[in-house]
């Protein structure tokens, strides 16, 4: 079928959105890993503290949470598109 080769419009956009979501999850994993083990791997005596928390924890679990919640919001705001989910009248499904 010719039309499906193109997979235009909604499905192409939906596939792109799925990839963005996966990429953001991987970015989150990277941030989480690098801040936690990058700042927290040394001996506890050498820790710096931010607002009472060890710096590794503050960066990975608190800043990471806020940052990626904002990035997720930005992702749906700028990269996700509004589209009808119904096929509309005359669809043969």
């Amino acid at each position: 079928m010719a039309s499906e080769k193109k997979a235009r419009g909604r499905f192409r956009q939906a596939d792109r959105e799925a990839l963005y979501a996966l990429a953001l999850a991987l970015a989150n994993l990277a941030w989480w890993y690098l801040t936690a083990y990058g700042l927290g791997a040394g001996p506890v005596e050498s820790y710096r503290y931010i607002l009472g928390f060890p710096a590794w924890f503050f960066m990975s679990s608190i800043v990471g949470f806020i940052l990626f919640a904002i990035l997720a919001a930005a992702m749906v705001r700028f990269l996700f598109k509004d589209m009808p989910l119904d096929d509309g009248k005359g669809a043969s499904w």
């Binding site: 909604r10 956009q13 939906a14 959105e17 963005y20 979501a21 992702m75």
Partner: peptide, 9 residues
């Protein structure tokens, strides 16, 4: 975002 985004529209 992963569940909603990957299963997606």
């Amino acid at each position: 975002w992963l569940t909603l985004g990957v299963l997606g529209k």
